[in-house]
Simulated scan of single mutants.
Amino acid sequence: MGQPTPTTRDRIVNAAARLFYGQGIRAVSVDAVAEKAGVTKRTLYYHFDSKDDLIAAYLEGRDQPNLAVFQRWYAEAEGSVDAKVKAIFDQLAKSARHPKWKGCGFLRTAAELAGMPGHPAIKAGVAHKQRVEDWLTHVLEADGIPDARTLGRQIMLLLDGGFAVVLLRRDPSYMETAGEAAAALIAAAARS
């Protein structure tokens, strides 16, 4: 059996995801999304009340797949928890070397909507980042690392800081350096 045929809503979200990630949310019109999805603007608005709802759906659609990739990279890495977390940063650095890499879609969207803290896309971004932080905290707790909640938060700061600096400088080695810092924090906490 093949893949199920995507629904019209899925086609719209997939088209929006490609355009929003590639060009930014403000640069992409609803007309462009409808055209890429192969639907009329009216059909798009049948499925989404506004462009804001479409932007939120784009991020919500990235949430679980992005977290699953982090979890897979962690699971596939060898070594102790510090080496496994560092492997996530190394994989992100590898991704950042791809010419189509544009950084974290959640952070880029948040930057475009910085003056709109109640926007549904900002809420989707906050929820995603919290899920990643909670997962990191869980893996640290499972390994018996003390003060896992604080350490999970510190690793999130390194992740998001890494995304920002790599995007600015176009130098993925900054993500690797952030991974080294995360591993050092974890190793130090494990010794305490």
Rank of each mutant, 00 (worst) to 15 (best):
Q3D: 11
T8L: 05
T8V: 14
V13I: 13
N14L: 14
R18Y: 03
Y21C: 06
G22R: 09
V28G: 06
V30Q: 06
V33P: 07
K36P: 02
A37M: 04
G38N: 09
F48G: 12
D53S: 13
L54T: 14
A56T: 05
A57H: 03
A57S: 09
L59Q: 02
R62H: 10
R62P: 00
D63R: 04
P65F: 01
N66R: 00
N66L: 03
N66E: 01
V69P: 00
F70D: 03
F70W: 12
F70C: 00
F70K: 00
A77D: 07
A83D: 12
A83T: 11
K86H: 11
K86C: 15
I88R: 01
F89G: 06
F89I: 09
D90N: 13
L92I: 14
K94W: 13
K94P: 00
A96R: 00
H98Y: 07
P99I: 07
W101A: 10
K102H: 15
G105R: 01
A110S: 09
A110D: 05
M116I: 03
M116H: 15
H119L: 01
P120H: 03
A121Y: 07
I122N: 01
R131V: 01
V132N: 02
E133R: 11
L136I: 14
L140E: 10
L140P: 11
T150M: 11
T150F: 13
L151H: 03
Q154R: 08
L157P: 00
L158D: 01
G161K: 04
G162Q: 12
A164H: 11
L167H: 09
D171V: 10
A178H: 06
A182I: 04
A184Y: 15
L185W: 09
A187K: 14
A189I: 03
R191H: 10
S192C: 07
